[in-house]
Design a protein around this nucleic acid. Structure first.
Length: 561
RNA sequence: AGGGGCGUCGCCAAGCGGUAAGGCACUGGAUUUUGAUUCCAGCAUUCACAGGUUCGAUCCCUGUCGCCCCUGCCA
């Protein structure tokens, strides 16, 4: 696998790295992407991935994949596997450099003993409630734990017995001895190790004590000789602890740099909440096409390149931001537009009979697969007396500027004839339009325009009734009904879900050439948008198409106004 | 005795003392057998605000205001 061309623009992290390289602090760059395997990767992770791998490739360095697996109660092998799948799909390669914090458990434990021996850590017996009380508040200093003055021998003995499994879960912890009066709460004797009897996906029951994030992350960075440890803004307050531990342990000291996490309008990025959406069945799974997960987007039909382009475009900064979903959609359209073949599909069919076209007759039009890329070749589409058009392309009482079908109006069938609507048939009971009876101009086949004939403005897509393939189409809309669900403090985010985020169309029809479309393959249904064959719900002969994204639609914009 | 960050066009974002890049969005117009694509044009006399330093400040200093993060034995 080769590194994708990720071209991140200038940013503050690059400036720092440039200085480090210029000053000789570093000769090369080593970064890492450190997910906790407690859920699936989402577009926010993609930003981090692109920054870490992108920075490494920009400086011809390397980027490690490291699982931050220090909390066995939340982590699962399923997630480890899914993360690797998504990472590869995105186009990144970590080579031999796959690591797990759990690989370092023995070393980390050794570090803990070292800290105790230096008098910089102690075993504390305070209960969680007491711990909270002793910690103080944002404005008041904490107070020293009564166990803070235990001597080194006792601490070492206790730590070893913690590891040996002599004490109950939660009964004791190992703490760093720093400063209970620090204005930075992270420095008020933070917990380094907790007793936890849980089976770890990789180390099983080998350990009953597990290191906390702060005692694993920086140490893992150090062991891997990471030069620049990039993380999100909320870890800024942890940096002093990161630095303190590297100094106290006298180990290689990477530099932690924080950047703003990604937020996207109309969705959420919290793994905890995404898990809830899955568990509470608000969505069909982590890979539901409405989810902001990479697996969801892949299934929806978003190309990996589009996601990488998106990450390049949004840049890297330190200010909290919420990026418009339109930016992502534009990246998706841009990629799909250039690489995907065209096809015709009718979402909500309305029967049209061409009254002057001979019964039983049929013909085929040979048309390009792509309007601008001849290398994509041609395809044939059948035409006959009965066709289907989309209901949206007919209006009984059309407004100004509507140049599709209406009583007495002419339109061009894309790649076919010009037809005129002569008669509108309705269901006598409901008044619903059930059929259009039209006549065609046989001089206009395949786009021909006889001398002197006026050009028609409207061109609509269609499908031959006898030849069309019935399919199911899933239309997706934003998952949430408000732009920034995470910013809504008053209401539970579940109340903000968009009840109409999924629309299932079971009567859709596509041109016969799509009958054997492969799962995951994408097409542009002309005038409608990009559609991708669902890789999970499709059966042979029963295709399900996911609408990946619509086309830009200036008409829709006008009608809203 | 609170601390740590951030404020440049509707949304992102370059800029690092010499007079506001770029993308998305939006608005025109051209081409078009997709109301798509493509193309061309327009879109911040101004950088949260107020002072100060300077020949000159978005960039330096001071103050004010606004927003985000931190009181898990989560990461």
């Amino acid at each position: 696998m080769s590194q994708p061309a990720i071209q991140l623009g200038p940013n503050f992290i690059r400036n720092i790295v440039d200085e480090d390289l210029a000053s000789g602090k570093h000769k090369s760059v080593v970064t890492r992407f450190p997910p906790e395997p407690n859920g699936y990767l989402h577009i926010g992770h993609a930003k981090s991935i692109c920054i870490n791998f992108g920075l490494a490739s920009h400086y011809q360095g390397r980027c490690h994949l490291r699982f931050d697996d220090t909390n066995p109660v939340k982590e699962e092998q399923e997630y480890i596997d899914a993360i690797k799948t998504d990472l590869r799909w995105l186009g990144f390669d970590w080579g031999e450099h796959e690591y797990h914090a759990s690989d370092y458990f023995a070393t980390l434990y050794g570090y803990a003993e070292k800290l105790v021996e230096k008098g910089l850590a102690y075993v504390c017996d305070l209960s969680p409630a007491e711990m909270r009380e002793y910690r103080g508040t944002l404005t008041e200093p904490g107070k020293n734990s009564p166990y803070r003055s235990r001597n080194i021998e006792e601490n070492l003995d206790l730590l070893r017995r913690m590891r040996a499994g002599e004490f109950a879960d939660g009964s004791r912890v190992l703490r760093a001895r720093i400063d209970m009066a620090s204005p930075n709460l992270n420095l008020r004797d933070p917990i380094l190790y907790r007793i936890l009897r849980a089976t770890h996906p990789r180390t099983g029951d080998a350990w009953c004590i597990y290191p906390m994030y702060d005692f694993a992350h920086g140490q893992s960075d150090s062991l891997e000789k990471i030069t620049h440890s990039l993380c999100t803004l909320e870890f800024q307050d942890h940096r002093p602890l990161y630095d303190w531990l590297c100094e106290a342990l006298e180990i290689y000291h990477p530099q932690q740099i924080e950047f703003a996490r990604l937020n996207l309008t109309y969705t959420i990025m919290s793994k905890r909440r995404l898990l809830e959406l899955v568990n509470e069945k608000h969505v069909s799974g982590w890979d539901d096409p409405r989810m902001p997960t990479l697996s969801g987007m892949r299934r929806r039909g978003f190309p990996a390149v589009a996601i990488r382009t998106f990450c390049e475009r949004i840049g890297v900064g330190k200010s909290d931001s919420v990026i418009d979903m339109g930016t992502l959609e534009d990246c998706v359209r841009e990629e799909l537009n250039s690489v995907v073949p065209r096809a015709m599909g009718v979402l909500r069919p309305l029967k049209v009979t061409i009254t002057n076209y001979p019964e039983g007759q049929a013909e085929e039009f040979t048309v390009p697969c792509h309007p601008k890329d001849p290398s994509m070749g041609t395809r044939t589409i059948p035409f006959s007396r009965e066709i289907y058009v989309d209901r949206d392309d007919f209006m009984e009482d059309p407004p100004k500027k509507f140049f599709r079908l209406g009583p007495g109006r002419e339109v061009r069938l894309r790649y076919g004839y010009i037809i005129r609507c002569d008669e509108v048939i309705k269901d006598p009971a409901s008044g619903e339009v059930t059929e259009l009876r039209c006549s065609y101009d046989q001089e206009t086949g395949g786009g021909a325009l006889p001398e002197g004939r006026k050009k028609v403005k409207g061109i609509i897509h269609w499908v031959s009734a006898a030849h069309a393939v019935p399919v199911e189409v899933h239309l997706y809309d934003r998952l949430f009904s408000v732009a920034n669900p995470a910013g809504e403090k008053e209401r539970d985010y579940r109340e903000l879900l968009n009840g109409d985020s999924l629309e299932v169309l079971s009567q859709a029809l596509v041109e016969p050439g799509l009958a054997d479309a492969a799962p995951g393959s994408s097409f542009q249904f002309e005038r409608l948008g990009y559609f991708t064959v669902d890789s999970k719900d499709s059966q042979p002969g029963e295709l399900v198409f996911n609408r990946s994204v619509t086309l830009r639609d200036t008409w829709a914009k006008l009608t809203v106004k």
